[in-house]
Design a protein around this nucleic acid. Sequence first.
DNA 1: TCTGGGGTCCTAGGACCC
DNA 2: TCTGGGGTCCTAGGACCC
Length: 453
Amino acid sequence: MFYIILPYITLKNIFTEKIALLKSLTCVIIMLNEHKFDKKDAFMIVMHIDVNSAFLSWTAAYEMQTGIERDILKIPSVIGGNEKNRHGIVLAKSIPAKEYKIQTGMSLMEARRLCPNLFVAPPNYQVYVRASKSLREYLNTFTPDVQVFSIDECFLRFTDLGRSKALSLAHGIRRGVYDNFGYTVNVGVSENKLLAKQAGDLEKPDKCHTIFSEEVEEKLWPLPIENLFMVGRKTKPKLNRLGIYTIGDLARSNYNMISSLFKSHGRLIYNYAWGRDDSTFKRRDAIKSIGNSSTLKFDVTDTETAHAIILSLVEMTAWRLRESEMTCRVVSIRIKDKDFNYILRQKKLLYFTSCTNEIYKNICILFDRYWNKRPVRQLGVSVSDLELANFQQLSIFKDRNILNNEKLDKVVDVIREKYGDTSVIRGVFANNELTPILGGYPEDEYPDMSSTL
DNA sequence: TCTGGGGTCCTAGGACCC
DNA sequence: TCTGGGGTCCTAGGACCC
């Protein structure tokens, strides 16, 4: 953080030997003005790296390595879930598929209607996690400041890089990724994360663009409003009704009106429209909730089956909770019926726990109390109000039984880690078709998937 | 063969206390 | 008996992201 004035100085062509001196002076000045730290972002370079059609690209690169002779990137293709299990949506699309107006999240049926020759490949998450990790390690060779935003997006920060050099470095990174891994990325360059991300979205694939603050009017404002980060499905029509169709329209609109109509979300997107983003490169905040959910292969109409599915979800969630060395005090359930109506119900416990049985028992109580008997399509469980396990105080409400169960859980965790997930399963799963452990376990950390960049 | 799964943040309304 | 306001906590639901 002490090098921030450097690019500015280099721009002014000051001799190199004087820079060291100025640098130390700057250092002192900044330390004296610690409360004015916001200014520093003006001289910082942020890059946003986005893998083009990530799941497709990684699948294609993997197929190439294993000798499969086809290029799914060059044909209309998607990565899609298993339709028989009612997971049939588009997870990623190739650029040719995009020309058929196929969109992520669309059902595979709809996608096929738009493009009858569509090629559909199943997802392979192990490949994606490996690919994501290798990319991150590579990016780390350019700067230690790499912040993971999602499985296929990162931010890089440079504190000692001039603007003129930034774009050529961005191109170097883009080419380097292609040469090393065989897939393309977009690199957006700017002075904050929001603008870097917007710059990366300008033109795809395999491109580098900048949007510095003085370029906002020229490059950001002409774009349709829905291209702005944090303007989604619901907000777009509301803004349209106010006559706001482009990002520039929002920037030039009345701040007080936007603020009173859309509250804090309105203030956020108004500032985004001006390219203002004061988020920092801080490490990830503590995790707030952990949960798993699953769309069921068939609609569930009886309590017994529902309880068994809840148990399989809780097995995964509670395991992840213990893995994070956390305990929870609030448990919740989400029940979605066959018509996609859903309810959420939560319950605050009298103590913190990470015990599978306790969480399961309480979620079942919620389910039994609030289920309206309509056929259930999807069930989700989650835990929140988390606290580190070693902070935990003994509660008078917690009996010996729970404490023993917590010990048992830890033993089961160790066995499962050693011999596989299904080495120890609950009795209820022994003689039926249900999966004993349900839900995904994110193997990697994707911090800051939050709305504030 | 209609429509996934993992999160975070914000707001409104009600209960309760002083 | 009626009428208050402020503050906190809790819950449900909705918006957004990848």
